[in-house]
Every structure is written in structure tokens, then in C-alpha cells.
Write a protein that binds this DNA or RNA. Structure first.
Length: 584
DNA sequence: GCCGTTTTCGGCCCGACTGTTTTCAGTCG
């Protein structure tokens, strides 16, 4: 069982317990446990095999959750969950996910009217039976009806890159108002999460009503879901919810901190404040003296943190993973920036499934200030993309040699290949060809659904191969579309370290593979990460920024990322182990 | 269920908004 599967079990347990009106802190404990497991770089299964006691050392995992992990890993199921599922039809959870329907209301319709499915709920609303329940009314009935249709759309989180486009449009729209003095987007967007559920925008403005009126005109005519004195929520046509908050200038930093989150980061912060006789909310930090509260800070975010003796945290790190421990020991990493990148080690041309020619890609890379670009077209197994056989590849490399000879500046093209790891194992091109490459990526495109042992064996074999430099998109996941291959990443990390190989962080916003948690795990094993665009056109060389964001979330520094080095330095790095091998 | 500079019990972040209420529960972030 993977960490993500185990975490899903505890989430489900938490949902069902919440429906049963169980102690909310117990519910939270399960959610915290699930989160801790999701954030863990090492696999729970491996820890259980090795020494189950170690699980309890993870913050958020106590005796009970640790024992349940052990049961899950050993038997594949959890008796507690089975019992809950016997007591409650799981379909009530889809009712609980309708905006406005929480555990209490869901339990009410279930117990009063025996409603357990979305279809039954819709019918009951249409018949006006819901408003008869105490605490429900006509309005609630309408909210539920529109919520049922929306639930499917609203649940889907959008790619960060998509959110970023909407952010730019809204920034422009609100920018038309001179009343706005300060404006910032917060939430998971600001933290750079790979997907975004909704947008939070904070504004300092002289006239709140005018800002709200203008906000209501964004992107056609959005549905206004709530509007108060300081807070307003709209939902645009795509289903995305956008929350606007208007705050006084002396509270802007506190509000920005508060609404950037994450929730878990804020909980730690607030607990810390309490221990120091302080109170922190979206308006500021206050010293509590008796029943008096004295404003201490709030104008700027760094003031808020400083009031708690903490450094300012880059938003990407605010997940209550390692940031507080790092701050304690003064080890807060200096995160990698886009400007640190020297080259891109994964790009395609129109020789296979790319849109632009070798020359165009080279020119575009130089325009972006890169010092090198590896041309890594597909190998022949990827027939749909017109993958390269030996002859065409050697031909392309010859053209790359000629291009480099002609070039006057510092920039150089690298002779590369994205060589397929075949279904039966082994690589798609002969060793004597691969030996002539500057840079070899190995990756899986076929046989993605093979069992764990088989997939893992294929990747390990590629890692051991003397001419392979790195594994591209190591888990193959496509966000919101395709799960990762069932690969034993613990084994991949061990092999990569042993053989001095790199792992890719694919910057495509739909891939971002390895993800933040696994990039952090790779770093802890001392494995360099290559952040690559996998560009299939000149424009997609700009995808690099999404990879950088994910790398920052993993806490990676310039030193942790291989392609912050010059090609000469990088060549030494990947050549060291290989030369030793060949010398034998 | 978790956790401990208030440590084995008794806490567990905090406020806005809505709808159905005559003072507040539920939901959300």
C-alpha cells in the first residue's frame, strides 16, 4: 500500500466519523494523521517492515494511527473502516461535499428522511420535503439544488497554471479601480500548490462597496454567493470560487499571512502565539493583558512573524512540514529561483512530436538566457510520436555537432535522447549509440499498468545502465487524469544514489513529476534533481517557472538542482560514477 | 486521537457570513 492510499483510508474514516458527530478533535486527529502520511517522503510500508515503532516519531501520528497503519500494510484493510461502512452508506459523503452541506445537515436529511444519495436528495428538494426539516428552509433547499449540479465541477481543483491566468485577468480587472491601494492574491495559489481549489484576493481600499460592485462584474456575470461588509464570494462560469476580502492597511500583512495559510501552518502559528501571551487573527497580532488586547503587529507579513520570533517564510514552505523546525535551527533553505537555472535538459523538436525545429528551439532557449539545451526527442518505441531509430538519431546528433561548430557564443546544444524503457525491460536503443550521447534520459511510456515489481525492476535496470543520466517523469502521473505508476520509489532513490543518477522534476503543469514531497525525499537521499520543461514547442520552454515553484515547495536550493550548474560542471557530475564503472 | 516550557489530563485557532432564527447553529476558509 502506498502512503497516498493509506492516507485516503484515514481521510475516509475521518469523514465517516464526522458524519456520526464524533468528537471533532478525534476527527481532526485522523485528518492530521492522513496529512502527516501524505507529507512523508519515506513509505509507511517500508517503515512498518523495518521498525513500526518509528511511525510514532512522526508528528501527528500517535499510538492508534501507527497501529492502524501496521494493520493496513500487513492485511490491506482496516476493521474500523469496515465497521463504519457497515453502519453508514458511503454515498452520504457525496451529500456532505455539497457546498453548504456539512456533517450536521447531511446527518439531518439522512436521519429525518432516510436520504443517502444525491438523486434522492434532489427529488426531496423538488418535492419541498427538505424545508420541513427543522433548521432548513426554502433558501437552503434552493442552495442544495444548485449545489448538487455544482458538486462535480466544484470538487475538481484546477492546475496552478490555469489559476494563474485567471489571477492575471482579475488583477487587471481590479486594477481599473483607483480606490484600491493594495492588492494581493493569497491561498494555495500563493503557496504555489500544483492545483488550486479557489482564489483568495485581499484588498486595501477606501470604498469597500465600490470594490465589491466592480468585483461582481468580473468575467461576465458571476454568481454572487455571499456579500458582507468585508467579505464577498463569487463563482465564475468555470465553477471557480473567488473570495474577496477588504482589510484596513494596518491589518494587510496579518490578513495576507492568515489567508495564505496553510491552515495547518496557521494552527502552529496560533498555538505558538498563545504560548507567548499573544493572540493572532486576520487583523493582527495582539498582546492579551487581562481582558485588554493591545495591537502589536499586522501591517506587513514579516512583522507578524517577527512578533512571534520567527523569520518570514516563503509561502511555498508554509505547509507545517519542516519550516518551523528549520526556523528553530536557523536552517531555512534559500530556495531556488528561476534565475538560477542555466540550462534545460529535456526538449523535443519537429523531428518527433515537437512543433519547432532544432534551430528554432536553440534560438528560443538562447532568448530565454539559457546556456545549454538538451535535445531529447523520443526513441523509436514511441511510434505515435515518430520516435527516432539509430540512423535518424545519429543524423540529428551530427546536425547538433554542426550547429555547435557554427555557433559563436557560450550557448550549446546537447546531443540527447529520451530513450524508452521497454515493456520487457531494457532500453530502446543500443549501447554503442547511447555511448555517443551527451545526455540520456530514460523514461516509461508503455506498460504503465504493470505490477509494482515489474515497473520497479525496469526503472532500476535503467538507473544501473552506464549511459543513462537521469530518469524522466519518474512516476508518470498526470494531475487530475492519471495516477502514478505503481513504482517503489524507496528502491529508486537507493539505486539513484548508489549509481550517481539524477531524477527529473518535469515542469509541465500537468505532470510536476516528481512532486514536492518526493523531491524533498530525493534531496534527503542526496540525489540531484533536474528541473526540465519537456518542451514540445518554443513557448513551452517557459514552463520552467512551474517546475521552479514545485521545487521551492520541496525546499530545494540552487545546489540541490543539477541544471543550475554550467554544462562543464554538470558533465563532471554525471560522468564521475560512469567513468569509474567503465574503468573496471 | 494527539500532545506536553500548563506533561498523563485537559486542552485542542479564529472570525465572517447565511439562514432560520428571535439569540444562534452550521458552514467555510
Amino acid at each position: 500500500m502506498t502512503n497516498s492510499q493509506i492516507a485516503d483510508v484515514f481521510e475516509l474514516v475521518a469523514d465517516l466519523l464526522e458524519f456520526q458527530d464524533e468528537n471533532p478533535f478525534r476527527v481532526r486527529a485522523y485528518r492530521n494523521g492522513a496529512r502527516a502520511i501524505r507529507n512523508l517522503g519515506d513509505s509507511v510500508a517500508a517503515i512498518v517492515q523495518d521498525d513500526p515503532k518509528r511511525l510514532q516519531q512522526v508528528e501527528g501520528i500517535g499510538k492508534a494511527v501507527a497501529e492502524k497503519c501496521e494493520v493496513l500494510v500487513r492485511t490491506g484493510e482496516l476493521p474500523q473502516l469496515k465497521k463504519l461502512q457497515d453502519e453508514i452508506p458511503e454515498s452520504v459523503l457525496s451529500i456532505m461535499r455539497i457546498p453548504g452541506m456539512g456533517p450536521k445537515k447531511t446527518a439531518a436529511v439522512y436521519h429525518e428522511l432516510g436520504i443517502a444519495t444525491l438523486d434522492d436528495l434532489r427529488t426531496a428538494c423538488q418535492q419541498g420535503r427538505i424545508q420541513a426539516i427543522k433548521g432548513f428552509g426554502k433558501k437552503t433547499e434552493q442552495t442544495i439544488l444548485s449545489g448538487i449540479d455544482l458538486a462535480a465541477v466544484a470538487e475538481q481543483r484546477i492546475y496552478w497554471a490555469t489559476a494563474d491566468e485567471i489571477v492575471e485577468q482579475l488583477r487587471q480587472h481590479l486594477g481599473e479601480l483607483t480606490e484600491i491601494q493594495q492588492l494581493e492574491f493569497a491561498g494555495s495559489y500563493r503557496r504555489g500548490r500544483e492545483t488550486v481549489g479557489d482564489l483568495d484576493v485581499l484588498v486595501v481600499a477606501s470604498r469597500a462597496d465600490q470594490v465589491m460592485d466592480h468585483f461582481a462584474r468580473f468575467s461576465g456575470s458571476p454568481k454572487v454567493m455571499a456579500r458582507g461588509d468585508t467579505k464577498m464570494s463569487i463563482r465564475i462560469a468555470s465553477g471557480l470560487q473567488i473570495d474577496l476580502r477588504i482589510v484596513p492597511p494596518e491589518s494587510f500583512g496579518a490578513a495576507l499571512q492568515y489567508f495564505t495559510g496553510s491552515k495547518e501552518h496557521n494552527v502552529v502559528l496560533r498555538t505558538r502565539a498563545k504560548q507567548r501571551g499573544l493572540k493572532i487573527n486576520e487583523y493582527g497580532v495582539y498582546r492579551v493583558e487581562g481582558d485588554q488586547e493591545k495591537y502589536v503587529a499586522g501591517q506587513r507579513e514579516q512583522d507578524v512573524y517577527a512578533a512571534l520570533d520567527l523569520p518570514w517564510f516563503p509561502p511555498e514552505l508554509r505547509e507545517a512540514r519542516h519550516e518551523f523546525a528549520w526556523a528553530e535551527t536557523g536552517d531555512l533553505p534559500e530556495l531556488i529561483r528561476w534565475e538560477d537555472i542555466q540550462g534545460d535538459l529535456h526538449a523535443h523538436t519537429d523531428e518527433t512530436d515537437g512543433r519547432n525545429s532544432l534551430d528554432e528551439m536553440a534560438e528560443a532557449a538562447q532568448d530565454r538566457g539559457l546556456k545549454y539545451l538538451a535535445i531529447t526527442d523520443h526513441s523509436k518505441r514511441v511510434s505515435m510520436a515518430g520516435g527516432l531509430d539509430e540512423r535518424r538519431l545519429l543524423d540529428q546528433w551530427e546536425r547538433i555537432d554542426r550547429w555547435n561548430e557554427r555557433a559563436s557564443g557560450e550557448f550549446r546544444l546537447l546531443k540527447g535522447i529520451e530513450c524508452d524503457i521497454l515493456e520487457k525491460g531494457g532500453l530502446d536503443l543500443p549501447d554503442d549509440v547511447l555511448a555517443q550521447a551527451d545526455w540520456v534520459l530514460a523514461s516509461i511510456h508503455y506498460g504503465q499498468r504493470q505490477p509494482r515489481e515489474q515497473i520497479t525492476a525496469r526503472i532500476l535496470e535503467a538507473i544501473r545502465h552506464p549511459h543513462v543520466s537521469a530518469i524522466a517523469h519518474p512516476t508518470g502521473r498526470l494531475i487530475n487524469q492519471r495516477p502514478p505508476y505503481d513504482v517503489d520509489l524507496d528502491a529508486v532513490f537507493a539505486a539513484a544514489r548508489q549509481h550517481g543518477k539524477l531524477l527529473e522534476l518535469n515542469a509541465n503543469p500537468m505532470r510536476l513529476d516528481l512532486d514536492d514531497v518526493f523531491c524533498a525525499a530525493a534531496k534527503s537521499h542526496g540525489i540531484p534533481i533536474a528541473i526540465n520543461t519537456d518542451a514540445h514547442s518554443v513557448e513551452s520552454l517557459d514552463l520552467m517557472r512551474y517546475g521552479i515553484l514545485q521545487a521551492r515547495r520541496a525546499g530545494l536550493t540552487k545546489a540541490d538542482v543539477a541544471n543550475t550548474r554550467t554544462w562543464t560542471e554538470l558533465k563532471k557530475m554525471i560522468g564521475g560514477k560512469q567513468r569509474k564503472k567503465r574503468g573496471k
